[in-house]
Amino acid sequence: MNNTIGLIFVGIGIAFNLFGCIGLVRLPDVYNRLQAATKCVTLGTCSILFGTFLVMGFTAAGIKSILCMWFLLLASPTAAHAIARGAHRAGVKLCQESVADQYAEDKEGEA
């Protein structure tokens, strides 16, 4: 029973990984790519690790996969935040369809 549910979680996770990578190729600029890729790939990999925990049970591998999942949930948004700020400071422009960029306006106001 646990085995089947775990396999379903692994399948869902792999599907979301694929969607995230398609987003990485299709979307037009850095920030949108970062959104799609970070959300979908992080949650997809967490789903795979949770499926691993369900299949393996309370063994060494299961406990470690829970630990890895927790670390990934903490670390991945932080990395996305750092990349977004670095890209904006390095002067990467938003794409053509963008509506507003209040960050750049505020920075120019200060300077």
Partner: peptide, 26 residues
């Protein structure tokens, strides 16, 4: 909210017209 976010992003990525309207707000 995480699950909703995933479904939202999957919808936007797989849609043929890419329904996005990006921007930075404060």
């Amino acid at each position: 909210e995480c699950i909703k976010a995933n479904l939202d992003v999957a919808y936007r990525v797989l849609h043929p017209m890419l329904p996005i309207r990006p921007g930075i707000v404060k």
